[in-house]
């Protein structure tokens, strides 16, 4: 069975470590916040200028001046700080964020990522994605393994305009957790009930299947 969005978020949450500063993109990455283990403390960075993003507000706490990068109303947690956009991207570009989780349309065996533009469709802009992938050492891309039509999104070479070049090393799909090394996807974990054959079939880029592939667990 392919992972649900919630299971994908749960699996990503296992990568969180006590004391991490983490930037979560829009979509599945946002859900990771719901699965932070109770015995660790992490600070969520929101690139509009908030370090220490808290829960959504109660109706009584609702404040137009308090939003996240997805423009949703949020709260600030204890120990939070707020700053301007240049400061926010200094943190990101300067490599101070420990983990970045974001979605993508495509990744390839060179670690390239395409996530912001589909030519011929309306282009809405890259927002902070190009800065995030250029600045972070530790990035996890979350995406479905193949499109609805069954086309692989794990490619030899991205077909869409890039968001960043040679910057991605970890990919979690609804079928597998993979790492990118030396021009190939290395299969590390399979989703429960998903066969290596299915993953092989749906991975267009070079795939290496080591002997010690594990079945994914969720904590």
């Amino acid at each position: 069975m392919a992972l649900t969005r919630e299971q994908m978020a749960q699996r990503v949450a296992l990568e969180l470590k006590d004391g991490y500063y983490v930037n979560l993109g829009i979509g599945i990455p946002t859900l990771v916040a719901n699965y932070v283990p109770h015995d660790i403390e992490v600070m969520l960075q929101s690139e509009n200028g908030l370090l220490g993003m808290g829960e959504f507000p109660t109706p009584g706490q609702l404040d137009a001046d308090m939003i996240n990068a997805g423009k949703q109303t949020v709260t600030a947690r204890r120990g939070a700080s707020i700053f301007n956009s240049a400061e926010s991207f200094a943190m990101i570009r300067g490599g101070h964020v420990d983990l970045t989780v974001l979605g993508a349309f495509e990744v390839d065996v060179q670690g390239n990522i395409a996530s912001w533009m589909i030519p011929g469709k309306l282009v809405k802009g890259m927002g902070g994605a190009m800065d995030l992938v250029a600045g972070a050492e530790n990035i996890i891309v979350t995406m479905t393994h193949a499109s609805k039509d069954g086309e692989s999104k794990l490619l030899t070479r991205c077909s869409l305009p890039l968001t960043g070049a040679a910057c991605i090393r970890k990919v979690l799909t609804d079928l597998a957790y993979l790492e990118i090394e030396d021009g190939a996807f290395i299969l590390r974990e399979t989703a429960p009930g998903v066969s290596v054959e299915e993953i092989r079939e749906k991975t267009a880029g070079k795939l290496i299947v080591p002997e010690d592939v594990r079945v994914m667990t969720f904590g």
């Binding site: 956009s85 991207f89 990101i92 309306l122 890259m126 902070g128 800065d131």
Partner: peptide, 20 residues
């Protein structure tokens, strides 16, 4: 944008902040 009346220069958010 699609009719060509408006010109747009899309700029990464951090680059835009730093440009200012």
């Amino acid at each position: 944008l699609l009719s060509g009346e408006l010109e747009v220069e899309l700029t990464p958010q951090g680059t835009l902040a730093e440009k200012m």
